[in-house]
Simulated scan of single mutants.
Amino acid sequence: MSTTSAATAAPPEKPAPRAAQVDVPAGVTAGVAVFDRQTGTFTEQVNSAGQFRSASVVKLLIALDLLWNRQPGDLSATDRARVDAMLRSSDDNAASTFWANNGGGAIIDRMVPRLGLTDTARPPASHPGFWGYTALSARDTVKIYRYLLDSAPASVRDYMMGNLRQSTRCATDGYDQHFGIAGAFNRPWAVKQGWSGFSSGGCTAPAGLAAKAPAGAGKQTGAAAAAVRSAAGINAADLSRPALHTTGVVGSGDRSIVAAYTLHPSGTAYGKAYTDLGRLTRSLNVPGASRPAGTWIGTWGSGVRLRTQATTAASPLTTLPAGVEVLVGCQKRGQQVSVPPYLNDWWAYLPQYGGYMTNIYLSSPDNQVPGVPVC
C-alpha cells in the first residue's frame, strides 16, 4: 500500500492538543508551516513565505532533480551511495558533487516550475557554488514534501523517504542533527535538517565519517556573508546569522508535514540554537504526533559524553552539543563522578540517545533531580 493511500484510509485520529501560540524564543527569527495531510489544511503558519538560506534542506531538491525522469535503480552504485549519505547524514561532499555535475543553480531553476515553488531562488550570482545559500521558505518546503509523498513516482518516494527515516544522529561533519522534529516527537518521523554558521556541532561521528564541509555547504558567516546578501537580488535570504532548520513528516501515514526555519543572534552556540528550536517545535500543533515521555532539563559543560551504562568505564555513545537541553527519562545510582567542586553518583538516562550521562552536568541544584523517576 502506498504512503498516500495509507494516509487517506486511516481512521481519524484525535488531534494533538492545541498550543496557545507558537513559542518563538527571544531573538529568534522563524518561518513555520505545519500541514495536516489528512484534512488538507495548515495547522500552523508563521512567516511561512519568508525566505531563509536553506543550508542542507536544499539537498531535497538536489536529490529530486537527480531522480527526475529516472528510477533510483538507474543510478550508479557510486551515485546511490552519495544520495544515501546526503539524505541520511547530510553529507556535503555528495551535495557538492551533484551540484557541480548537474548545473549548479540550474538545478533550482528546473525545480521551481516543476514543483510550483514561489519563494525559492538559486544562490547569489557572486557565490554560485554555495548550494546552501539557496533561498527556501516554510510553505515551499511543504510543497516539496507534498510532491514527494503524493505525486512522485512510488520508487522515488520510497527511496527518498526511506533515507530520511534513517537519519543518523551524527552528520558527516560532526553535528548532532536530531534536533527539532527528531527530538520533539516519537517515531515514525522522517527528517531533513539544515544548519549553518556554527563553530561546533558537539557530536561524535562514526569513525571515518567526520569531514569538514566544503565551500559549497554555504556555511560562510560574518561580513563576507553580509556582502553576498547585498548582491542577492531575488534571493533575499539572510546569510549572516546562524541558521538552524528542521523539516520532515511526522505520524502514522506521514500525517503531518512540518517545516521550521530559524535564524539566531550572531555568536549563538549550537546547543542554545538546538534548544530554542526544540522548544519552538514542541509548541507546534502537529496532528498525528506522539510526544516522548520525560523531563526536559538543561545541561552545562562541553564534551559531555553519553555512555551505555552509568559508569565512565562503559563505552561512549556520543557527546552532547555544549549547553543543550536534553530529555531525561529516569535516573539511577552508578559510579561516583568527581568534577571539582562537584561529586555525584547519580546518572540520568536519556531515552532519545539510549544512554546515560552523569547528573553533574544537568542544570539541577540537587544530585538527584527532583521529580524524575528512578530507573
Score class of each variant (00 low, 15 high):
A7F: 04
A10S: 15
K14Y: 03
P15T: 09
P15Y: 10
P17S: 06
V22W: 03
P25R: 14
G31P: 13
Q51I: 01
F52Y: 15
V57W: 00
L60I: 03
W68R: 15
D79M: 13
R80I: 08
V83W: 12
A85D: 12
L87C: 10
S89I: 02
D91S: 14
G105I: 03
I107T: 13
I107S: 05
P124K: 11
F130Q: 14
Y133D: 14
T141N: 12
Y145T: 04
R146Y: 02
V156N: 06
G162A: 09
R169M: 12
C170E: 08
T172W: 04
Q177I: 15
G180S: 08
W189D: 05
K192Q: 15
S199D: 13
G202M: 06
G208Q: 12
A210L: 11
A210M: 12
A217W: 00
K219F: 00
K219L: 01
A226T: 03
R229L: 07
S230I: 08
A236M: 04
D238Y: 01
L239R: 04
S240P: 00
A243E: 01
H245W: 02
G248M: 08
V258N: 03
G267D: 08
A273D: 08
L280R: 03
G288I: 06
R291T: 14
S302M: 02
R307Q: 12
V328I: 12
G329S: 09
V339D: 15
N344T: 12
L350F: 10
P351S: 09
G354T: 06
Y356G: 05
M357S: 09
T358Q: 13
N359E: 11
Y361Q: 06
Y361D: 05
S363M: 07
P365V: 04
V374H: 03
